[in-house]
């Protein structure tokens, strides 16, 4: 179970800025620890952003996305009270889903 996904939606007129912080090590499989042991590859592979239960963004990521990545997206016509949820699945099969109500 991963750490909480932080979601922020800010309505500016017709447009909404959506910021999503996924807390994840995003290990490339190329780094070594203090003892010279290679750290296993471990990264978010897919994520989905939904608006009131309907998918609006589907993402696929590689190890080359930074650790604890912050994403920003834009959408049109989102209203106060709408629900935005984000879920991800990583290379180890771990999953996390969080939801906010737009205020």
């Amino acid at each position: 179970m991963g750490e909480q996904i932080k979601i922020r939606a800010q309505i500016k007129g017709d447009m909404t800025d959506i910021r999503i912080l996924m807390q994840h090590p995003m290990e490339t499989g190329q780094r070594k620890d203090d003892k010279g042991q290679t750290l296993a590859m471990h990264f978010i592979q897919t994520f989905t952003v939904s608006h009131n239960g309907k998918t609006m963004i589907e993402g696929q990521l590689n190890t080359s996305v930074s650790k604890n990545p912050l994403f920003a997206f834009k959408a049109r016509g989102i209203k106060v009270g709408d629900k935005i949820s984000v879920s991800w699945q990583d290379s180890a099969g771990d999953k996390r889903q969080d939801e906010i109500v737009v205020s």
Partner: peptide, 8 residues
Amino acid sequence: LEFSGPAL
């Protein structure tokens, strides 16, 4: 990244 619905 794939966009649909309200996403720009």
